[in-house]
């Protein structure tokens, strides 16, 4: 087994991030194309802030909408994947630092991960 050098860790992270973005962008594109085909002639109005309905705010609702192939649900699911990409990066770094037996940075990375989890907890009631 190759050692988890900083260099290797960074390269794996780079690849992870790129594929996360490609995947997320593809889902957003598919949902967006479906939306514009179905509702392209509707009149958009973003002047007044109303906020999104609960189904497009919470992870469970977004997953449900995406699985039933609602265009807005698909886009939102892609965006959720995009937000999860850097979180996955941090999670991977926790494991990598632990494998390097680098206690200081395992703790540092765990703190960052905890802050991100707290934030994502806002979409998972």
């Amino acid at each position: 087994m190759r050692a988890w050098t900083d260099d290797l860790v960074e390269r794996v992270i780079g690849t992870l991030l790129r594929w996360g973005v490609i995947l997320a962008a593809s889902v957003v594109l598919a949902g967006g194309a479906a939306y514009l085909v179905l509702y392209g002639s509707s009149i958009p109005d973003y002047r007044i802030f109303r906020g999104q309905p609960p189904d497009l705010r919470m992870a469970a609702g977004i997953a449900k909408e995406a699985l039933s192939l609602h265009p807005t649900g698909l886009i939102q699911f892609g965006l959720l994947m995009l937000i999860a990409t850097p979180v996955a990066r941090v999670a991977f770094s926790v494991v990598a630092f632990a494998l390097q037996r680098d206690r200081t940075y395992t703790v540092v990375t765990l703190i960052v991960f905890a802050v991100l989890m707290y934030s994502l907890g806002r979409v998972a009631p």
Partner: peptide, 28 residues
């Protein structure tokens, strides 16, 4: 930048600030 933005994006999404139809062309 990505990790920083992800920390506030969860709060924004949960609060309903992220509109899918508007975000789609912006992100792409």
């Amino acid at each position: 930048i990505g990790v920083t933005a992800a920390a506030s994006a969860g709060v924004y999404l949960g609060r309903g600030y992220i509109d899918p139809v508007l975000s789609m062309p912006v992100m792409l």
